[in-house]
Structure formats: structure tokens, C-alpha cells
Amino acid sequence: MSTVAKGASVAAAAGIAAVFAVAFLEVPGDPPVHAFPTVGVLMANGEHWCTASVVDSPEGNVVATAAHCVAPAGKDGQPGEVAHDGLAIGELAFAPAFSGEGSGTQPLGVWKVRSVHVDERWTKWGDDTADFAFLTIAPDSDGRSVQQAVGGRGEAPLPDWTSGYDRDVTVIGYPESEHNPQNKPVSCTTQTRHDEDDPDMLYISCAGFWTGTSGSPWIADRGGPGHPGRLIGVLSGGNTDVDSTAALFDERAKALYDRAARG
């Protein structure tokens, strides 16, 4: 399988498998309850093109996504050209629990990205096994961290740097508006395995992960509220909406995470 990035500028083919849109439950007089409050979209100038998610960190200021969502792939040791989406279209921000038609709503706010941390294996060589990034998120005007806003340490998954390839995971992402006009996240729980064409990559088969789902978190051992599980990777590619791949987090991913956590 040739891996195709699922950012906003890349189309994906149709497929058939189980996937569902995540509903936000609302009780009169209470704030809405979000099934996956830590997951949202990367935005600039009101547009969104990739998925990202809060990962547990000491200061509550780290978000994970795919490297190709925030930095061009390098080639032969040289940096790649900046794409016409992502950072090229304006100041980068993160909107957790995003939903709604058109420009949508941001029930948990829009959070400024302070810095981006990407492995040089990606920025110089375009190595798919390094297609992950960690973003440092600035606090809001009240001094809150993004992790506090999405529910605190009981909601954000812990990062896992030593995971094996066979795990039960829940993957959550935001397809492009063409296939998802209400901008609702889709979710699938399934088992990972080695990708047949690139055994160094994780693979799942779940329909509905169209363009826009790049950066979707792959969360193992998730048990619902209060049991957020462990983040083992983020969606990086796949040549249809059914086939999706991810680079398994490793010690180099941990080094990027540690840099982002320090701000």
C-alpha cells in the first residue's frame, strides 16, 4: 500500500467499514458533554485541515498531530517546500471539541500554538516513521492550560513510547467538510497490526477516515471518562478512507514531546 497523507490538500478514495460520528450530548441547563473533548482541529484564518489532540503533560500544554500537518517533508537531506495549507495560510491554532457547519463552533476555545516540534528525519528526509509532531500550546488569557480546559489530567491520554504493534485502539478524527459538512469527529475502535507494505508502520482498517483526519490520535487502553488510555501514535496516511497508517511513538518522539512540554 502506498501511503498517502490525509491532510486537507489530498483526496482519499471511498471504502466500506464500520465507523460512526461522535455525538455531543446536551442536557438543558448543563454544558454539553463531549465524547472526546481532547480531540479537535488545527486551524488558521478560520480554516481547518488536520486533526490534533491533547496529550497528558506536566504543564498541560502539549498537543500531538502529524508532522506533515505542520511541516513540509524533506528530501535527500534538504527541507521541502511549504505547502499551501497549514502554517502557510496564517497563525496556527487548536480548537478542541470543534463541530458545526461552515466555520463551526469552538466550545472549548481556540488555543494559540506557541511552537512546533518535528523530527529532522521528517524535515530532511520525509521519513514516514517520523510523521508525528508535538505542539506547545499557549495558556489562555486567564492562565489556564489547554489540558485544564478539556478536563484536566483525567481526560488526556498518557504518551506511550514503548508500545508494541498489536493493540486495541480508538482512533478519532475530523474528515474534510465535503464528506463531513457538520464537522463532527468520527471514531473507530479496532486492533492495530504491522502495515504489510511497511512493517515499521502501524495499520488499521476503518472506513470514514477521509482527508482531514491526519493527526488523529491512536489511543490504546481507553476506558472512557477518567480512563483516557495511552497515546501510541497519530494517523499519518493511507491510500483510501479505509486504510490508515501511523508511526509508532519511539524515543525520538519522546524527545520532541519533552521539548514541547518545556515550552
Score class of each variant (00 low, 15 high):
residue 198 D to R: 07
residue 8 A to Y: 06
residue 153 R to S: 15
residue 168 D to Q: 14
residue 168 D to H: 06
residue 202 L to S: 13
residue 155 E to T: 12
residue 188 C to H: 11
residue 164 G to W: 04
residue 148 Q to Y: 01
residue 255 A to S: 11
residue 211 T to C: 00
residue 157 P to M: 09
residue 73 A to D: 02
residue 111 W to Y: 08
residue 208 G to L: 08
residue 185 P to Q: 06
residue 36 F to L: 10
residue 3 T to K: 05
residue 147 Q to Y: 04
residue 77 G to Y: 04
residue 109 G to Y: 07
residue 60 G to D: 09
residue 2 S to P: 13
residue 26 E to W: 11
residue 261 A to E: 05
residue 14 A to L: 11
residue 41 V to R: 11
residue 25 L to E: 14
residue 2 S to Q: 10
residue 31 P to K: 13
residue 247 A to K: 00
residue 82 V to A: 12
residue 158 L to E: 14
residue 205 S to I: 00
residue 77 G to R: 01
residue 260 A to E: 03
residue 221 D to P: 00
residue 47 E to F: 13
residue 211 T to Q: 03
residue 248 L to N: 07
residue 142 D to C: 04
residue 238 G to M: 00
residue 210 W to C: 01
residue 162 T to E: 15
residue 90 G to P: 06
residue 139 P to M: 02
residue 132 F to K: 00
residue 161 W to Y: 12
residue 56 D to P: 09
residue 176 E to N: 14
residue 18 A to Q: 14
residue 6 K to C: 03
residue 26 E to R: 15
residue 157 P to Q: 05
residue 32 P to Y: 04
residue 157 P to G: 07
residue 183 N to G: 13
residue 220 A to S: 15
residue 254 K to Y: 03
residue 167 R to D: 11
residue 181 P to C: 05
residue 31 P to G: 11
residue 61 N to A: 11
residue 85 D to R: 07
residue 188 C to V: 14
residue 95 A to R: 13
residue 203 Y to S: 11
residue 194 H to K: 12
residue 217 P to Y: 03
residue 111 W to I: 13
residue 158 L to K: 13
residue 45 N to W: 07
residue 234 V to Y: 02
residue 184 K to D: 14
residue 194 H to W: 07
residue 169 V to A: 10
residue 10 V to W: 13
residue 210 W to H: 04
residue 134 F to G: 04
residue 159 P to I: 05
residue 238 G to I: 00
residue 189 T to Q: 07
residue 245 T to K: 10
residue 68 H to F: 02
residue 136 T to S: 15
residue 38 T to M: 12
residue 172 I to H: 11
residue 210 W to S: 02
residue 69 C to L: 12
residue 224 G to H: 03
residue 103 S to I: 07
residue 199 P to L: 14
residue 224 G to R: 03
residue 242 V to N: 05
residue 121 R to F: 01
residue 223 G to S: 04
residue 35 A to M: 14
residue 191 Q to V: 15
residue 222 R to I: 08
residue 147 Q to G: 03
residue 146 V to M: 10
residue 155 E to S: 10
residue 171 V to T: 12
residue 260 A to W: 03
residue 65 T to Y: 02
residue 112 K to H: 14
residue 146 V to A: 04
residue 241 D to Q: 14
residue 110 V to T: 06
residue 132 F to I: 01
residue 241 D to T: 10
